[in-house]
Design a binder for these strands. Structure first.
Lengths: 324, 324
DNA sequence: TTGTATATGTCAACCGATTGACATATACGA
DNA sequence: TCGTATATGTCAATCGGTTGACATATACAA
């Protein structure tokens, strides 16, 4: 059972290879009769063209790389799922890359994607941008991350979201409102708008901002430990704005175990979170819209549409109040 | 800034293209000196070989297709994440495909994967297996799903898991224990071992099994509605074995909103679930081990290792008791 | 001195499909 | 009857890298 190729189809249909190619690509003149003959031959032989060969010749792979920290995180999971669906509907294929926020991995993946001649990249990883991004002119769009002036960013309105969350906690009469973040100090200094929104809101309300840094994104156990420790030291905490839903869930669990009554607001609002944590409020990011715009922008760039420098798409968020 | 190719490197290094290729592939005799010269040239030109061309000639793409319903579901998300990580560490790339349990989509994706000359496929989608699986001799492994006699299955011990869950609920003195499943009737008849384990346990305990079918996997809102309805009609339900964690979360939320006290046991035990639902017990599937075995088996098949018919790897589950 | 391992080059075929150039043939309307 | 649109074939180059065959040259050990 060897691989069927274009020549075999030609023989089967009794036409020339060129004619088969013409049918395949709808070029030149072909009679309906011949088309049918060729299509029948393809069916009986169970033929489909070798995309690798086509890619090589055409210098187009219809492949897009998705660089994200980890699809285990529901936000990235839903984002990647949505991106893939849209890409697929447009005839593109998605190469998935879990960088685990590891700079070296991100660089390796990038190299791999370039070597595989992807037509574009969508990046949501949270590393320090590396040189390769500068040296390539491959179409790239970023999700909630600055990569370079040339690369458009799609993000939700982190600042407003943080304000909404903080205001809600204030109005819920929380006395000690803490912002818990998984960001690194570097990220926080570089313009963490969720942090900024929280601080500004607190100051506007003439309250003291209190920030708790819980360490890296991906190490759940470590985060759990740190949160536990924090709550031991600050048992009077009664309001938390968590920078992400996973964090919100962890805090919730810790609090419940300690029988602390804490009003929590998360960030992301994935369907997974809404299914699993019916009792926690959150700021909902419009993942579907973000994915749509990301793909649209990327495919635009691929087909040569110019995108101005420092372009940013900031999408509105919504506050989702939940309680049992 | 045109694409750098092998010939350019040859010129830069002052050697023949063949020599560059030899360096690249470590073949024949090359002096250390020449190797360095060539490598330097590759560095200065920022060259990397075109994998598409290599794939075409070598008839090997190092590409693996991952066919799963939806990475939005934490189980599939973590599975895909783990599979990708392992594959990546072995020099393979992962093409992600969300079938949404849609038969037509699965078939299209399959065709696409074949056309793209993937070296193998890992399938966890829950459709009726289609013809293509029979007609190809591409290496394939399945996660918790029967595809054909030729295709090995990796799964967790669904039966034992269901027994553990059911026994726990019994010992917790639940009076009305229901099994809630997202399976279709067809799937249930075809050997749903979670269902089977539940029924057998109930019968062994001389109790009446009660099954509630909540409809398709992926439509959360519909499931929420159905669960709500069910709890209205059966407010005396005080124990639930849910066939998946997402379902468990939905049930939990509904119950809390109705102030019903229901002991729930889910199935999957993903880290996402454990983070978000600290209060619900579950049966933990060893996702990492399953992924390891799946990749190992697949890469074995790719390199020609024979796999006996009807091979099944059944991995042990663990009961995770949780409460706030 | 001869044989062999090492080192590099040239050349052409190949992976599978695409495409442009060019030839040829039929049918049909002007 | 001529011109043109339609229809199909042949042939070779191309995409970028790989590989086998073969030539050649140096160095070193037997």
């Amino acid at each position: 059972m060897e691989k069927v190729k274009l020549g075999d189809v030609a023989k089967q249909a009794g036409v020339s290879p060129t004619t088969v190619s013409r049918v395949l690509n709808n070029r030149g003149y072909i009679s309906e009769e011949t088309k049918t003959k060729v299509r029948d031959a393809m069916d009986t032989l169970n033929y489909f063209p070798n995309e690798v060969a086509r890619s090589l010749f055409g210098n187009k792979t219809n492949l897009v790389g998705l660089l994200f920290p980890n699809v285990t995180n529901p936000f990235y999971g839903e984002m990647v799922s949505e991106l893939e669906s849209i890409l697929s509907s447009q005839g593109y294929k998605a190469l998935i890359c879990n960088t685990f926020n590891n700079e070296k991995k991100e660089e390796e993946y990038l190299r791999m994607l370039l070597a595989n001649q992807v037509d574009g990249i969508i990046v949501g990883s949270r590393n320090r941008p590396c040189d390769i991004y500068q040296s390539t002119n491959l179409p790239i769009v970023a999700i909630d991350r600055f990569v370079s002036e040339k690369i458009p960013i799609i993000r939700s309105d982190n600042y407003t979201g943080a304000c909404l969350a903080s205001e809600y906690l204030h109005e819920a009469n929380c006395r000690n409102i803490v912002h818990v973040t998984g960001s690194t100090t570097q990220e926080m200094e570089k313009g963490d708008m969720r942090l900024r929104g929280y601080i500004d809101t607190m100051l506007k309300l003439e309250r003291e901002p209190q920030i708790f840094q819980v360490g890296f994104d991906e190490d759940d156990d470590y985060q759990r430990l740190k949160v536990d420790e924090f709550l031991n030291l600050n048992p009077d905490t009664d309001g938390v704005f968590a920078a992400g839903d996973t964090l919100a869930g962890i805090i919730n669990t810790c609090a419940k175990r300690k029988s602390l009554d804490i009003e929590i607001v998360g960030y992301d609002g994935t369907s997974t979170f809404l299914n699993l944590c019916g009792g926690i409020s959150t700021i909902h990011q419009p993942i579907n819209e973000m994915a749509s715009i990301a793909v649209e922008t990327l495919l635009g760039a691929i087909s040569g549409v110019y995108c101005e420098d420092n372009k940013e798409y900031v999408l509105p968020v919504t506050f989702i109040k939940r309680r049992y």
